[in-house]
Amino acid sequence: MNIKRYGSVAAVALAGTIVLSSCAANEAPANTGTDSTNGGGAPASELEGNLSGIGSSAVGAAQEAWIAEFQDKNPGVTINYAAEGSGAGREAFLAGAANANFAGSDRAFNDEEVAAGGWGACASDEIVELPLYISPIAVVFNLEGIETLNMDAATIAGIFNGDITTWDDEAIASQNEDADLPDTAITPVHRSDDSGTTENFTDYLFQAAPDVWTHEPDGLWPIEGGEAADGTSGVIDAVSNASGTIAYADASRAGDLGTVAVEINGEYLEFSPEAAAAIVDASPRAEGRSAGDLAYELDRTPDEAAYPIALVAYLIGCQDYSDDAVGELVKAYFSYMASEEGQQTAAESAGSAPISDAVRTEVESAIESIS
């Protein structure tokens, strides 16, 4: 079988829970009517105020870059983002918490949550969910001298289900005849927090290996056993510090760890932003959503060469904010993140895949409805 290689993303150092802000926003010179950071001679930004977001740790590296660029262009604005996990983001946004003017989540709100509504910061039950961060989820491992391994979905599911317990198991060895596999015990590592990354990973296992992985997709790890770690950083630390470990994490954090090439239609596909974006292009939109709610139903068993373990992180906001000033800031910040410049900034800093022009058109229409 062949291995298709797409190249890997750069590692990004990031704390498990972060608050991102820019000193420049607090040290900017008085508004002189022009702003050299906006091209020299262009009108200075008149935006002012504070904006807070919370949620996905996978999107934290992109948020760090987005915030720096946006505040540079808008020195009167300060933005904080707490990367405490997708579940924390959705919960805080629903409750209308002070630190949740917007949320980042590695999954959209589900049909039941959308139907229930009751968004604390919103003046209506309409929300916008924008797919502004597309990234592969890497299956990472720590085995001395081994940089990559081939695995099909059933093998990956068997490992995380606790059925395959040593690295020299025939299920792994038969797909990696040239690898010198040790008889070391496998220690699967999973997220301890409510995680959109977990939900995307278990959705892949459920769709691609239903005979092995019988658990419904969930943001909370559904079975006992293995090792639990908090947040993306916690998972990466756990794998980095112990031989024989294996886990799933946003690919931007894979660093020097070994990674798995995933079997798709008889070929083994390594992760890349481009291959992850292909799975989104091959997937349908969720039905029954409002025009501004751009949720996707990802197809994890594509006919084409698309990397199936991918996440789409949504930036979530109100369509109608109770505080108009907050609505204005969210609208401006979401517009920047969705722009070609914003998407390229995320790609360069976090290895994500820029959204397509077709998706951007829909996203811009949704952002225009925010008030």
Rank of each mutant, 00 (worst) to 15 (best):
A10F: 11
A11N: 13
A11K: 14
V12G: 14
A13E: 15
L14R: 12
S21A: 15
T34K: 14
T34D: 12
D35K: 11
T37W: 13
N38D: 09
A42G: 13
P43F: 10
E48W: 09
G49S: 06
N50K: 13
G55L: 10
G60F: 05
I67T: 05
I67G: 04
P75N: 07
G76A: 07
T78W: 09
I79S: 02
N80E: 14
G85N: 04
A95T: 05
G104W: 11
G104E: 10
S105V: 01
D106Q: 11
F109E: 08
D111I: 13
E113T: 10
E113M: 12
A116W: 15
G120A: 01
A121I: 06
C122M: 00
A123Q: 01
A123R: 00
L130K: 09
L130A: 06
P131V: 00
V140R: 06
F141Y: 04
L143R: 08
I146R: 03
I146V: 01
E147R: 12
L149D: 00
N150R: 15
N150F: 04
A153Y: 12
T155A: 13
T155W: 10
I156Q: 10
T166L: 04
T166V: 12
T166H: 05
D169N: 13
A171L: 07
I172G: 03
E177V: 04
L181D: 00
P182N: 03
D183G: 14
A185S: 13
H190F: 00
D194C: 08
N200T: 12
F201Y: 10
T202W: 02
T202C: 02
D203W: 05
L205Q: 05
Q207R: 11
D211P: 09
W213H: 09
W213V: 02
H215L: 11
G219L: 03
G219A: 05
P222D: 03
G226V: 03
A228C: 01
G231Q: 08
T232R: 09
T232E: 14
I236F: 06
I236Q: 08
A238Q: 01
V239M: 00
N241G: 01
A247C: 06
A251E: 14
S252H: 13
A254N: 12
G255F: 06
D256G: 08
L257R: 09
I264Y: 07
I264S: 14
E267S: 15
Y268N: 02
E270V: 09
S272L: 05
E274Y: 11
A277V: 07
A278T: 10
I279G: 06
A282Y: 05
S283P: 03
R285F: 13
E287C: 02
Y296M: 01
E297T: 11
E297H: 08
A306T: 00
L315R: 15
L315I: 14
L315H: 15
I316P: 01
Q319Y: 07
D323T: 01
A332M: 03
E340M: 06
E340F: 04
G342L: 06
G342A: 07
T345H: 05
A346F: 02
S349I: 07
A350K: 09
G351D: 10
P354N: 04
D357I: 07
A358H: 05
V363M: 03
E364C: 01
S365M: 09
I367F: 02
E368S: 15
